[in-house]
Nucleic acid binder design. Structure first.
Length: 594
RNA sequence: GGCCCCGUGGUGUAGCCUGGUCUAACACGCCACCCUGUCAAGGUGGAGAUCGUCGGUUCAAAUCCGAUCGGGGUCGCCA
């Protein structure tokens, strides 16, 4: 049936005179009573079909019946349009299909929302009829681009010797990390598999097995609350390599990601390699966050030494309590009003746990702002010098614990970057953040946990600190950051048994617990483990960044809503009582049913 | 779990702040008829919403108040 198919978006003036058979959906229909024009749509574009009652009375009858989104087949001849009838807005605007025969392959109900235009539609309705949403040009383009991106990644990885290995979807639950999705076992009632949060342990075991360059476009599942850039199911480019250090892993990704990126012509297409590198310390000190948006300056500057002993009690007290004071200089910030700062900007700072946002303007008349009077002329000069403030600028400051100061000013910095348009939208800044801390302490429980994961190798210079000052220990973990968004992370792994034990001990995990949780990995490592490391990055987020969309549902064919439901099939749903009986599962009486 | 925004014919919006003139407007879509060169075709006519739900205030509620449901965003959470 499709042997001689002409795709709607493809014929050009040069095809005039050729017979053609086109298949597609009715995008628009213009019935003149005599002549009928139908814009026929497939994924390649739109073809104008002309049905003349004199040429083809039967086809004309069918075309008169046809409505939007009906599926039609047209047979006829590609004709050049007369010059006054050319439509310059359309790729196929110089030609049209003069129809001999028409068949209706399927009728269609009136669609619940317009398929032929790009209007905003209620999210729930779009998801309920996802097949129609996907039919629209926007999602067609996104998903076709995503597919191309993935194909190119596979090609690029294969080019440099990586082997794609599938890892299981039904695995042992891991106590660490995100909440697991569980799959009950029929043969072992009361026991469960978990869906993988990542193939982490399997890829490391693959290194032990001698597959020295592994990759996978791996599906991962995490039962956590959703966000605009987070779905419960997502896809990672997952890699692991043996006998390597950071440089080798970075080089592999600096080959694969730009290849795919450029093949998709994302944002002009070009990525400069190698990607710049920045330590975690430098990122937090200068940008306030561990995923800095380096497309603009507005860097954080330390003012602790200048204002820590000043007459401004808020600063002095914070410093006396072991805190710090930092500031950012907003160039041309003279136009920031007191209500701009005390309203939205302070809101952003408070949202990041700061108690407030202090401000000074440097004007021709001198330093102004409510707190200017607390500082000496020397102190004000020093603030200006440290922040680089000139006349017409505004300095914003926060005093508190270092983590609060950095977080709050980092948030204010990102906010200002966005609202003051401090960067070029076409610019792509991809960079590595290295030397992350090995451990972090929970604010709530005070417990120490692994910042990346417990198999991350310690920075060689910090081995001695493991017991004495664990929070100062740097790891060999690294993130890839794009325009202020983290898109992936990885590390060189621990393969030395003694170091592994010390790390587990620092985490409060004794030998018995380690054996229970990770025994199979530790045992495997006793049979000849190569030094190795790897990385995993979100495909969905890379495609989002490349396409310039800010919602992950725009790059996933069948996503879930914010409640992790799939409105088209109505998953999740209760199951037949017999299925539960087979699994030895009973639902507790007060459990909420959807 | 907290906070913010949204909910008006099939779709997208206006009206809501400042209650009555709303018997709810506009565009698209839908139905019928007319129309042989349109391309967001055009013309004429028509159908379609008790304004998410429940309760309250009021002589009177799409409009004000409360609760609740649904959707989105965000914080927590996501090694």
């Amino acid at each position: 049936m499709t042997t001689d198919r002409t795709y709607c978006g493809t014929p050009r003036a040069g095809d005039a005179g050729r017979p053609a058979t086109a298949f597609g959906w009715v995008d628009r229909r213009r019935d003149h009573g005599g002549l009928i024009f139908i814009d026929l749509r497939d994924h390649t574009g739109i073809l104008q079909v002309v049905i003349d009652p004199n040429d083809a009375p039967e086809a004309h009858g069918a075309a008169r019946e046809a409505r939007l989104e009906w599926v039609l087949r047209f047979e006829g001849e590609i004709r050049l349009r007369s010059p006054e009838n050319v439509n310059p807005k359309r790729e196929t605007g110089e030609i049209e299909l003069r129809v001999r025969a028409c068949s209706v392959l399927a009728v269609a109900r009136t669609p619940p929302f317009p398929v032929n235009e790009d209007t905003e539609v209620d999210e729930q309705l779009r998801l309920r009829h996802r097949y129609l949403d996907l039919r629209r040009v926007h999602l067609q383009r996104n998903l076709r681009t995503r597919a191309k991106f993935c194909t190119e990644l596979r090609t690029a990885m294969a080019e440099i010797g990586f082997l794609e290995i599938e890892t299981p979807m039904m695995i042992r639950a891991t106590p660490e990390g995100a909440r697991d999705y569980l799959v009950p076992s029929r043969l072992f009632p009361g026991s469960f598999y978990a869906l993988p949060q990542s193939p982490q342990l399997y890829k490391q075991l693959s290194m032990v097995a001698g597959f020295d360059r592994y990759f996978q476009l791996a599906r991962c599942m995490r039962d956590e609350d959703l966000r605009a850039d987070r779905q419960p199911e997502f896809t990672q480019l997952d890699i692991e390599m043996s006998f390597v250090d950071e440089d080798d892993i970075f080089a592999a990704l600096e080959h694969a990601i730009p290849s795919a990126w450029e093949a998709c012509d994302f944002r002009g297409g070009h990525l400069t390699v190698p990607f710049p590198r920045m330590t975690w310390r430098e990122a937090v000190d200068s940008y306030g966050v561990d995923k800095p948006d380096t497309r603009f300056e507005l860097l954080l500057r330390d003012l602790t030494g200048i204002v820590g002993t000043s007459g401004f009690r808020v600063f002095a007290d914070a410093v006396a309590a072991g805190g710090i004071v930092k500031g950012i200089c907003v160039k041309g910030g003279d136009d920031l009003s007191r209500s701009d700062i005390e309203g939205p900007l302070t809101e952003v700072a408070r949202g990041a746990r700061a108690r407030g946002l202090a401000y000074l303007w440097k004007r021709a008349e001198g330093w102004q702002g409510g707190i200017a009077k607390f500082f000496s002329a020397d102190e004000l000069d020093a603030i200006g010098a440290a922040t680089g403030a000139d006349t017409g600028d505004c300095v914003l400051m926060v005093a508190d614990r270092p983590s609060v100061v950095n977080g709050a000013l980092g948030a204010v910095r990102n906010h200002l970057g966005r609202v003051r348009r401090l960067y070029d939208d076409a610019r792509i800044d991809m960079l590595w953040i290295t030397e992350f801390p090995m451990f972090e302490r929970s604010d709530e429980t005070g417990e120490i946990s692994a910042a990346h994961h417990p198999f991350t190798m310690i920075h060689a210079d910090d081995l001695d600190l493991l017991e004495s000052d664990p929070l100062a220990v740097r790891s060999r973990a690294y993130d890839l950051v794009v325009n202020g968004r983290e898109i992936g992370s990885g590390s060189i792994r621990i393969t030395d048994r003694a170091i592994q034990q010390r790390v587990l001990a620092a985490l409060g995990i004794d030998a018995e617990e380690a054996q229970r949780k990770f025994g199979f990995l530790l045992e495997a490592f006793e049979y000849g483990v190569p030094p190795h490391g790897g990385w995993a990055g979100g495909i969905d987020r890379m495609v989002m960044e490349g396409l310039g969309t800010d919602n992950i549902r725009d790059v996933i064919a069948y996503p879930k809503n914010q409640q992790a439901q799939e409105p088209m099939t109505d998953a999740p749903a209760p199951v037949d009582p017999g299925q539960l009986r087979d699994l030895g599962i009973a639902i507790l009486p007060n459990t909420r049913m959807p």
